[in-house]
Design a protein around this nucleic acid. Structure first.
Ligand SMILES: [Mn+2]
Ligand SMILES: [Mn+2]
Ligand SMILES: [Zn+2]
Ligand SMILES: [Zn+2]
Lengths: 146, 146
DNA sequence: CGCTAGTTGCAAACGATTTGCAATTGCATT
DNA sequence: AATGCAATTGCAAATCGTTTGCAACTAGCG
């Protein structure tokens, strides 16, 4: 769930295997993604990349994100409001809880919910290809226990 | 769940109560929404409105949707890919299953999932304000039984 | 080291939505 | 019914995030 620094998949190998050239901009972006623990958007990735190599363009960031998404190396999220955010696909599947006040993104997973989704789809005659479960909420005040 | 023609809330009354002027464009858009069974986007609403009153503009459709959303009369959905889609808020809460091949939107509801969401948020110290659950899938082939 | 297809930066195009503004209109008031 | 003014409108231009055309560049093979 993105919390293990040791989880740094070898994207370069994977890319070469797919017949894709491993260029300087891509190497920089790949390194950034591998080192990232959060869910940065294209502009944030672009800024982090710029600080390493001034010549990298935002277009290349977008193109690289699309490339990686296509090969399943990253996931793209479109949370309410803002621009698309990305994260490595290497970890286990999880969904997100977004703190409406701070914008913080918290990851969670529920096997039970995943099962129920499959069950619902099946009953409707469908097979789920992917899904999106996002909870938007705010921190419970200390006094809110009940 | 939008399937009952008799469910046509009196938006006009609600609007007046909120100190909002009930203009001709708004009346037309309101009527369209009340009669709508699906999840049209702004352009579709605009076209339906145009066929009733040529002078209505797309801007006004957008402004009206925002107004109605603000007063809780409609819900705005941002399904993958396309533009925002709208639906009356009058019915009971439900989530959506999108057919990836046809674009069809199927509504469903699971009390169990809703409960689990609350439980998860609570455990994380959060209170859910709203959520988004979308299943993207394709029809199961007739032979796919198992 | 040269070749060529893949890749880049840049600027311009894009699609959806929002906004500034001057003209129009709802509607409360005479 | 006429008045007045703020709310609302249509239009065009602006905005935001993202994509794309293109000429210049470069990875990677020979
Ligand atoms: Mn995540
Ligand atoms: Mn619906
Ligand atoms: Zn999930
Ligand atoms: Zn729900």
């Amino acid at each position: 769930m993105n919390h293990s620094p040791q989880t740094k998949p070898d994207y370069e190998r994977e890319l070469r295997r797919a017949g894709v050239r491993i260029t300087r901009p891509r190497r920089v972006i790949l390194d950034i993604l591998a080192a990232t623990e959060d869910h940065p958007d294209a502009m944030e990735i672009f800024q982090r990349a710029s600080s390493i190599d001034k010549s990298i363009s935002l277009s290349t960031v977008y193109r690289t994100m699309k490339l990686l998404e296509g090969m399943g190396a990253i996931h793209r999220h479109a949370f309410e409001g803002g621009p698309a955010r990305f994260e490595q696909a290497s970890g286990d599947h999880h969904d997100h809880l977004i703190d409406l006040d701070t914008g913080d993104v918290i990851e969670f997973h529920s096997n039970r919910i995943e099962e129920l989704q499959d069950e619902i789809a099946r009953e409707l005659g469908y097979e789920i290809v992917h899904h999106r479960l996002e909870l938007y909420g705010r921190r419970r005040k200390a006094g809110n226990r009940k």
